[in-house]
Design a protein around this nucleic acid. Structure first.
Length: 147
DNA sequence: TCTTAAATCGTTG
DNA sequence: CAACGATTTAAGA
């Protein structure tokens, strides 16, 4: 009861062919500060992720593809900037689309913040929440401080 | 700097 | 077709 000890898994001791191990290794590299492109790293392992499953419409795919092609590690942009690039004023719609992202980090929606420089929503939550704090921490890892 | 109101438009039911 | 938003802009206190 009171004397449980936390067991840490030694990733290096596990079968490196296991996709979970591979994913863990990628995440580990990211979390310790290596400036990797997680989306590219995912492509290199034997795993197909249905990242477009939730994005059927032309507009939503344009948003996702624009982010994947233009926003790299350590870079941020805003919902309105994406709108301008896509010739649309549907700023809130862009937020609604990113809300459906089932693959945060892989589709790096944590790098999309509000136009006024504040953090904006993350993982469905637009109010104060652990999700928004996580978004700040991810950006902090990438060298960006959002107050 | 706050707080509020209105504009905005693709998606959803 | 109306209602909804991970937003934005402007206006007022």
């Amino acid at each position: 009861m009171g004397n449980k000890k936390i067991q840490f898994i030694d990733l290096d001791s596990l079968n490196p062919k296991n996709v979970v191990v591979k994913l863990s290794a990628i995440l580990k590299r990211y979390l310790i500060g290596e400036k990797i492109n997680i989306y590219q790293e995912i492509k290199n392992i034997d795993l197909e992720l249905p990242i477009y499953e939730k994005f059927k419409s032309n507009f939503s795919r344009s948003v996702i593809n624009w982010i994947l092609n233009n926003i790299n590690y350590g870079q941020i942009t805003s919902y309105s900037e994406i709108g301008k690039k896509l010739n649309s004023k549907a700023y809130r719609v862009i937020g609604s689309i990113l809300k459906k992202n089932n693959y945060p980090l892989i589709i790096p929606c944590h790098r999309i913040i509000k136009g006024d420089g504040t953090i904006g929503g993350f993982m469905g939550k637009s109010n104060d929440s652990w999700q928004r704090n996580l978004k700040k921490r991810l950006l902090r890892i990438e060298g960006i401080d959002i107050t």
